[in-house]
Design a binder for these strands. Sequence first.
DNA 1: AAGGCGGGGGT
DNA 2: ACCCCAGCCTT
Length: 359
Amino acid sequence: MKTDYSYIVEDLLNWYSENKRILPWREKPDPYYIWVSEIMLQQTRVEAVKGYFSRFISAFPTIKALSEAPEEQLLKLWEGLGYYNRVRNMQKAAQTIVADYNGSLPADYTALLKLSGIGSYTAGAIASIAFKMPVPAVDGNVLRVTKRLSGSYDDITQPKVKKELETDLLAVMPGNRSGDFNQALMDLGATICIPNGKPLCDACPLAKFCIAFQQNITSDLPVRPSKKSRRLENRTILVLEYQDKFAIMKRPSKGLLAGLWEFPNLDGHLSIEKTEGLLKEYRIFSYSMELLGSAKHIFSHVEWHMLGYRIKLFSLEHEIWDGMIWASKKDLQYTFTLPTAFSAYTKQIIAEKEQHTKC
DNA sequence: AAGGCGGGGGT
DNA sequence: ACCCCAGCCTT
């Protein structure tokens, strides 16, 4: 079903000229900056990205610098932002750009789309904002705004629905201000036609065109089927300490939190007795143990209920687990990337006063 | 087409 | 609790 959006263009652009948000990546129209911001913004709110963007650009001022970065440093700069494959894909794309495009992003929608981590939304955003090409950039904001405008009950999780909208918007892209048009839809979605709570239709420049507003059905749109429920996992976290260093291990290279570091942890909630038994199996006899209490972390599709033990070793004669390393407090702060899931335990360590074994 | 993949803020 | 966020990749 085709929908005509030509009637919104002028009012939307006028509204954007007066009301656009001031954002760090809007200060200089460098395609590299636009790209970094768009990757960070995938499924992530503007407010969360602000603190990461400038630090990342300072650390890697050019695509070449990004292409050569050590993975550990990349992940550390991404720590807490989530969806860590985004930054690995971005580096892979940076290497392609250095090899195939002389270190500059191609001003070509199809070429952008082929780069790792760039889908139809991000290709459209870079092409229109950085290169002024007349292509749409359809994200969650744009889907919400347009489905309310047209009063459509389409399921916006269907790829077909997004493709149709891209076609409809392509037909009305303003040739001279395509980037502004795309960003206007997103700013409107983020500040007026908001996702949670009542939209601010009184302040909306498009209310006079909006079917959802006229029919008072904004709270029903857009339509998105409810998500699958999460599965619960109980885990036991071992904060092993020896001479002011802490045991950490690298997670597998695939799956949840791939390649990040973590405290040794086990499936299920282990009692004190079970944990003592486990330590005996590993031939650890000289230690003190303290119950750290529980912590919860919610991912989109899993929920961890964690129980922690702080175990201070008084002697260490042998390896405990393959691949385990001992990290100082500074290493935990500045070098290794630990997911936020463990923050209840890491924060406690970082906050402790420096221990002085001497004197 | 469906599911995996983080973390946080709003209601 | 449940919602969704400047989505993309793999299966």
